[in-house]
Amino acid sequence: MPPWVKPLGVTVAFLAMIPFAVIARARVTASPDPRIHIIRDMDNQAYFKAQSSNPLFADGRAMRPPVPGTVARGEDELDDHRYRGTTPDGATYVDAFPEGLTVDAALLERGRGRYQVFCAPCHGVAGYGDGPVHHQALAAINRGRPGMEWVTPTSLHAENVRGFQVGRIFHVITNGVRNMAPYGAQVPVDDRWAIAAYVKALQASQRTED
């Protein structure tokens, strides 16, 4: 056997390891490059999934918003009590829960969960207006970050807030107030009532009679 066969074999064996090393590295590193699908099958079909984009429309949305004024069947939301927390004339807030909603432990438990998701970030778990977002905002102000127009969240145990009717609490969640954004789009109607019930319970829990 000539002398070059052995070094050649070693070199080939060494070079053959390189693709594996490259792949092993690719497996443990993140990459912003698009995924490679060698066999495409029908991975991407000519239809639009939820929230995908469609350049045919000026705003780029594949999902089309309903024409303004559209009312879905069964969603006329004419019941002022259930959907706005007010009396039919809109003059005062109701202090009762809408028909068909039973205030029981299950509703309060639902309200507790939803409160912790949507309200506690600012109002705090116990409702004193001291949630983690508030603390982070204060820290950002202290560090001198520009564009901080933060306003301390309202304590749910403030004297005037304690006196709110459940209808008013529901109304504030739905439409927002002053610096608080509306949450009607994020929280379904029944969940908003559950949160209102839980806020009432929270207020009662923090109140000791003199």
Binding site: A50, V133, A137, G147, W150, N179, A181
Partner: peptide
């Protein structure tokens, strides 16, 4: 928000970002 109610877990609308960012880091 839709993750418990539907097949698709939505990416939030810009309005959700603006719940806080009308007051936080506005510049």
């Amino acid at each position: 928000t839709s993750v418990e109610r539907g097949p698709h877990a939505n990416v939030p609308p810009t309005a959700t970002c603006m719940n806080c960012h009308t007051k936080v880091l506005t510049e």
